[in-house]
């Protein structure tokens, strides 16, 4: 296990956002978090990076864990001038060649000198992915990374993720709403609605009753969820 949480609960200004969560991510595994809005997906990622302190339970990290994080929305203050190359050099200085390499790997070569505020949604997403991969992480946390992408962009993005896992054996834990993709490219799905409703390998069988009962409103948003019962 790269990272594991046990009996984790968390609150944001008095409101319970996570309740008794136990889950983990193995090396090289792609895990997807699904759940309705406000179900605690982002909060769970924030607890894993340490931005949200749990009220109960604990987060256990493997000693060799190198974690990278791509937030849901990255608003960059327009008054802060920032080129792509400089962004990739934060916080640690990187060589020009490693930056060029990372951008090429992310599918956006040669844009080092551009300002990040001037990039398109898809370009910026790739640049963020390139930055996340700079320190050769073994766990990548992606929070709704495809939010501002069109269909082609989304498909490209998941190819990118698959390629990253294939080439670097980096584990991925992502929040996603693109369920048809999730079903094809994920090793494991976790259904979250403050607590974990269910988790397991996605399969294309009959929707499991436990999900329809426990997710309720979420099921109306994603009628295609079919997940086998937790092993």
């Amino acid at each position: 296990m790269l990272i594991r949480v046990e009996g984790l609960s968390a609150q944001i200004s008095g409101r319970e956002v996570l309740r008794d969560i136990s889950m983990g991510v193995e090396a090289g595994e792609i895990v997807t978090l699904v759940g309705p809005n406000g179900s605690g997906k982002t909060s769970l990622l924030k607890t894993l990076i340490g931005a949200l302190t749990p009220s109960q339970g604990r987060v256990l990290k493997d000693q060799g864990l190198r974690l990278a994080y791509v937030p849901q929305k990255l608003h960059v203050e327009p008054m802060l001038p920032m080129t792509v190359a400089r962004f990739l050099s934060l916080p640690k200085k990187k060589t020009a060649s490693s930056i060029a390499q990372a951008l090429t790997a992310a599918g956006v070569p040669g844009i080092e000198k551009q300002s990040i505020q001037g990039l398109s949604g898809g370009q910026f997403q790739r640049v963020q992915l390139a930055r996340a991969m700079m320190d050769k992480p073994n766990l990548l946390l992606l929070d709704e990374a495809t939010q501002r992408l069109d269909h082609v962009g989304i498909a490209d993005f998941y190819h990118q993720i698959a390629a990253i896992r294939r080439d670097t054996n980096c584990a991925v834990l992502m929040v996603s709403h693109d369920l048809n993709v999730v079903m094809r490219q994920t090793d494991r799905v976790i259904c979250l609605n403050t607590h974990i409703c269910c988790q397991g390998k996605p399969d294309h069988g009959v929707p499991h009753r436990s999900i329809s009962v426990s997710l309720g409103s979420a099921m109306r948003i994603w009628p295609c969820i079919t997940i086998s019962r937790m092993p």
Partner: peptide, 17 residues
């Protein structure tokens, strides 16, 4: 400098680093 810049850009990215 670099730490301050990253915190200014996004506190969560800073925490993750």
């Amino acid at each position: 400098w670099s730490n301050l810049l990253l915190v200014t850009l996004n506190p969560d990215l800073a925490i993750a680093s």
